[in-house]
Write a protein that binds this DNA or RNA. Sequence first.
DNA 1: AATGAATGAGCCTTCATTCAT
DNA 2: AATGAATGAAGGCTCATTCAT
Lengths: 217, 217, 217, 217
Amino acid sequence: MATRRQPVGNKRRIPRQARATETVAAILEAAAQVLEASGLGGFTTNAVAERAGVSVGTLYQYFGDKTAILLTLAQQELELALSDVGRALQAEAHPLVEGRVRAMVRAIVNAFRGRQRARKAVLQAILAQGRGLETMEPLAAFIAHASEQIGRGPKPVLTTLSPEQVFVLSRSMMGTIRAAVLEEQPFFRSRAFEDEIVRLVTAYLDAVTRSAVGREA
Amino acid sequence: MATRRQPVGNKRRIPRQARATETVAAILEAAAQVLEASGLGGFTTNAVAERAGVSVGTLYQYFGDKTAILLTLAQQELELALSDVGRALQAEAHPLVEGRVRAMVRAIVNAFRGRQRARKAVLQAILAQGRGLETMEPLAAFIAHASEQIGRGPKPVLTTLSPEQVFVLSRSMMGTIRAAVLEEQPFFRSRAFEDEIVRLVTAYLDAVTRSAVGREA
Amino acid sequence: MATRRQPVGNKRRIPRQARATETVAAILEAAAQVLEASGLGGFTTNAVAERAGVSVGTLYQYFGDKTAILLTLAQQELELALSDVGRALQAEAHPLVEGRVRAMVRAIVNAFRGRQRARKAVLQAILAQGRGLETMEPLAAFIAHASEQIGRGPKPVLTTLSPEQVFVLSRSMMGTIRAAVLEEQPFFRSRAFEDEIVRLVTAYLDAVTRSAVGREA
Amino acid sequence: MATRRQPVGNKRRIPRQARATETVAAILEAAAQVLEASGLGGFTTNAVAERAGVSVGTLYQYFGDKTAILLTLAQQELELALSDVGRALQAEAHPLVEGRVRAMVRAIVNAFRGRQRARKAVLQAILAQGRGLETMEPLAAFIAHASEQIGRGPKPVLTTLSPEQVFVLSRSMMGTIRAAVLEEQPFFRSRAFEDEIVRLVTAYLDAVTRSAVGREA
DNA sequence: AATGAATGAGCCTTCATTCAT
DNA sequence: AATGAATGAAGGCTCATTCAT
């Protein structure tokens, strides 16, 4: 009967004090751990709070909703991965396209190494809510941008990719890596596997470029 | 999904009578419909039973577990998809590699087309339980076999693929299509998307072949 | 995260079996008892279920909402009271207006005797939700009608009452009786008190009639 | 409202300084506003504190209990209403009984006019705790006294009312007005409604007087 | 075999109250 | 005196599962 005001759903309190900031961090860390240990099924607010060493009440002081935790986590992870990959691409150390592709693949493989389960769960949760698109948007934008960077340089490859091409490019790479993690393939971190992914991406980029050039001519 | 009392588990009763078989079919069909209509969140045993026109009790007579329904559904869908793809490959109608690749891509996309939401939910549910591996295994085996068929024919392309190559080939294709389903991409059924996947696969096959030839020479 | 479908709020299952009907009755009886014993503050679904000897789940099988219980209870009580008062009025035993008024007063006093607290709580709950008007409507209609019956007979008194008059007539009488109960006045069931209420009502009716007649003349 | 830890109870600190007095006033004003805006359901200590521009801690410095705020609010309102009514009666401006009754009714209605929702909520809260009796007592005493004042004056009406008569007189009037507030009747502030209450009271006074005279004669 | 009423653990969320700063 | 982060009991409600009929 108690009236439920503020069906907010988002963040609730902007931590202004040091202690509060720590608490938020603890909650997010705990959330990732719980997700990692028990999957989405075990991801309950009580479990997160307990692991974080705070009470549920505190948790709700900073996250208006169970979902808000997930969303924040997702964003955080995304940004981390993005900056890793971005760093790999910006390096001037790779003059050749292949070199840059390889750097990116390596960054992604590394990004996928830790807390695989948490990552998966976050992904699922996001998707399960139809929030996927918005959340993924920065990633898509990034890869669209990244593909231009790959092409640029001493040996430029392409100028613009269609949305479908960006999608195929990013998802084929990500999907392959993700599958290897999920299936716990023994060759996951092997050079042979890395070679094949690089081959996949460069071959596709090549094909796309050739086709574009052919059309222009 | 958290099992409550008895951790029963799998199927319970092997239907020997016609009526029983019908009941099981009705439940599975209802499950797919519920999944399609309300997503995983609305997938409750009661909802499925009601839609199937049976009582929950009856449902539990044939499926020891809510999960068992999902698992059965997944297997069923998988078999359907596999036989579709198999048919596409066996046809002698595609003399060129590209033709065969396209036929396969189309078969897979089609397999994923109907009841997308249900499929997505099944996928999620399977993955959420770590059951993904077992369930996916037949698919992997199939594609490994299929890649040989692609290469064979009037214009043979390759003889043997390394395990890593089979993996990259199959997962990049599946992963891309799956991502399109999960993210509910609007271009999912477009020709442009199909073209890109075909390009991805053929480009990779080409690159692999060229490298193999080079090594042999 | 579990999706909450059906934010129904109303009744949920129409009991078809004997046992179910009993259960509903038990829940309503328990609700009244809890209300009586602990007031609105103690009126929790768990308390009601426990007192009814059923589980919360069962309770929610028949009432989609905590409020639904209160609403049903209110309707039930209202109908009971209404039929009591109605019976008092329909009796041909009271040829005089005063006699009929007295019969009504007595019926109301009796109606207010049992489970005062429950009644009060129900009232409050109804009002607290702004549902008061709808719920009270039959009562208003009834009193409007009853006032006509009071006036009819060998010595007719009035023909039509304005909404304000119906309101003042009914609420002054009800309010006085209710106050006596709430304050546990010792004279609550005394003849003297009854006399005064009868005097109040008849005097008011008289005044209204005289004013109406005066206006007509 | 259920007290959680320390069953503290009432006021805690008697403000001796100017600032403290202001704070208390701010809290009470905020309480009324919150009540008015969100009803009893939204009446949380945090909401009140925020609106008052103080912290919860400060609030608890002056009110040992959420209830204490409500109680204080109720008393404050009551005193205001009482002094209004008293002023209306003491005025020599109304030589006729009816005039004095009308003045009183108007004073009471007016008292109930502003912040109706807040008042209703306070009323409900008081009643919900069985605290109604104590809180209402001064009002009853006042009306008993007032009825004597009504009768006095240039045209005296009655000498003594029996306890039952005082009760019926005061409660019928208050009960009717209160019901109009609680039910949020649209005609609450209309002249027609006022007329009917005046009619009710004067008719009753009249009837009582006539009966007393008859008995004396 | 089927039914469906009943169960109850457990989830998410709120909010009165405390206490270290 | 004031602050506001933290607490945690308690409440409403869901749903997988059982079992008497």
